[in-house]
Design a binder for these strands. Structure first.
Lengths: 337, 337
DNA sequence: TTCGGATGTACATACGTGTAATTATTTGTT
DNA sequence: AACAAATAATTACACGTATGTACATCCGAA
């Protein structure tokens, strides 16, 4: 039995089994000829000592440590938790452990990621600077980008997964348009200025492009942005609904925002969806339980997870990664006609 | 400039600065006398090469790698995401990185945690076997337990944080009782059998104890358990509400369950809170946006995070860890009288 | 001068592993 | 029986770092 805090090493196993350390190593990695007899003795010793190879040392030898890091912006958002679970599900079968970490836009953070031994990184972050992402890529770390915005300046061995955000939002706009809405408003957390400069955010871009295609003229009235908490957004929506400028549909960045918008609209005495439609994004648990149940756009998280792992495997094998294009699914409930 | 995939090492820095590797090490760890001149040259070389110490190698030398692992059961639950964010907030200032990983009740998982270099582990899991937790403890890994149930058989250098779950549930029961409810039902995911055997789950225990203290007789009618998805629970609640056995209050394991219960109760045509009260747990984002807004019990996540880091610091310093007892806060909204 | 201490540098080793190169042993073939 | 080939086990080194120990220099005090 290993004493407290005194993890047994390969040497202990070798001594107990009466073989050299190398034999132990070969048995465990199953890559050289080892006699059946010694193999058995080694395995028994391993069992008896509860020995297991130290993955730090193993990683130092460049063997990887079967760890995938999932970096996200807004860790508190349920969306990432659910995605983590999916990732974990498909990764565990392949021998990987996945963990979720909050992104920090900070050189030290990048350094620590790089100097840690992770086999791959999955990034879903609007805030992480492209130069930092580039740095990860340049250091030969397999990187999978969950595309919520352009990473125009990032080049090299990067994999990209388009989850269908842009076309999903476009479909939502068309749906509302076809159901008779003529005055749509896009609701986002981020301030409009940041988006307008370049249409980097895919949802924003999808909204704008589809609106323009349908012949609408976009103006400041087409957006509510920059609200960071419940009350702020609630008030902003109320002001907008009560103002002279007509509104009959809200297209929201995610279900969390949509829920607040919905409450505000109802509080203003408007009927949903008769007078005003609301559509969210994510198909969060909340979207299902609120009343009226929220219409929303669902990404296929299982497919995202599988795509991510497929891309990672390819990159680890040294292949040049491709892009994956997935599709969203409209979940029509009670806030749209 | 480092070539792609070719991270510079200490030796590169030493060569460029014209000093020995040891000097570089001393400069970076600031623990020996180094002449101002060489120190300057080293720092310049570090800057120029974008060198940074490999934390794998560093960890191998037993220096730790400033990484805290947060292990949770139900990673998709928003509660853990929010807690991760808080943990991350307080930990980052102290130089730690925190990541969240889904618990697996599996020997291999424990082995991999142990052989990875994490400085500490925070566990919030009902499913992880106590023997595995014990194993982590026995290997001198600082472990903080977020107590949602007893860990009766776990001994040694473990820290425990009581987030106030038990007293929180008790307060909820009293609240409903005092507001006139006489037929309370406890709603949980886990099946009753698992709980009944020993009152290990703190919420379950809190509910039972307080009910008994108030003089109620508990029976099978006092519980709805074992429902794992929306529809299942919805139906179970409807059946219960429409049955002959009276109900006038639901005390739920968490807000997610409470939301479903609430919808079912309303769907049965009952008035909330006039005829039936519902109270949740967690103060999740959802609890705020659903209508009627859900009364719930909030744990102080910031305090939990701070307590966890305090305990970890103490354990790393070699002190014997204590226990922290925190309190919950009742958030009375519109589903209770 | 001689010694002690403070300051600065370098060497050598260790952490626990993987594996190429090497040597020892067995097997197979003629 | 002899020798090549296949198999088995060992030796030796490397990964990138931290640090005990040893060595070197310089200054001031005895």
């Amino acid at each position: 039995m290993p004493r407290k805090g005194n993890t047994p090493t390969r040497k202990d196993v070798a001594d107990l089994a009466g073989v050299s350390e190398t034999i132990v190593s070969y048995v465990l990695n199953a890559n050289r000829y080892v006699s059946a007899d010694k193999k058995k003795r080694v395995l028994e010793a391993v069992e008896k000592l509860h020995y297991r190879p130290n993955s730090i040392a193993r990683a130092l030898k460049g063997k990887g440590n079967s760890h995938i890091l999932f970096i996200a912006d807004n860790v508190a958002n349920n969306y990432f938790g659910r995605l983590l679970q999916e990732l974990d599900g498909v990764a565990y079968n392949k021998g990987y452990l996945v963990s979720l970490m909050s992104a920090k836009n900070d050189r030290d953070f990048i350094n620590r990621i790089l100097s840690r031994q992770v086999d791959a990184v999955i990034i879903s972050s609007a805030s992480l600077a492209e130069s930092y992402v580039q740095e990860l890529v340049d250091n030969a770390l397999p990187v999978v980008l969950l595309m919520t915005r352009d990473y125009a300046t990032v080049h090299g061995r990067v994999a990209r997964i388009y989850t269908g955000i842009e076309s999903g939002i476009m479909a939502a706009v068309r749906l509302l348009h076809e159901s008779g809405c003529r005055n749509l408003v896009h609701v986002d957390r981020v301030s409009r200025q940041e988006h307008f400069s370049s249409r980097q955010d895919l949802r924003f871009r999808g909204f704008c492009n589809q609106m323009e295609t349908l012949g609408y003229q976009l103006s400041a009235d087409s957006f509510i942005t920059g609200c960071h908490d419940y009350d702020e957004l609630f008030e902003a929506v109320c002001r907008r609904v009560r103002s002279d400028v007509p509104v009959d549909g809200f297209v929201c960045r995610n279900d969390d925002l949509a829920s607040i918008v919905l409450n505000a609209v109802l509080a203003c005495g408007k009927k949903v969806p008769e007078e005003i439609s609301v559509i969210g994004f994510d198909n969060s648990d909340t979207s299902r339980v609120i009343r009226p149940a929220l219409s929303t756009i669902a990404t296929d998280q299982k497919a995202i997870a599988e795509a991510a792992l497929e891309l990672i495997d390819a990159m680890i094998k040294g292949q040049t990664p491709g892009e994956k294009h997935l599709v969203t699914r409209m979940v029509i409930r009670d806030t749209t006609r």
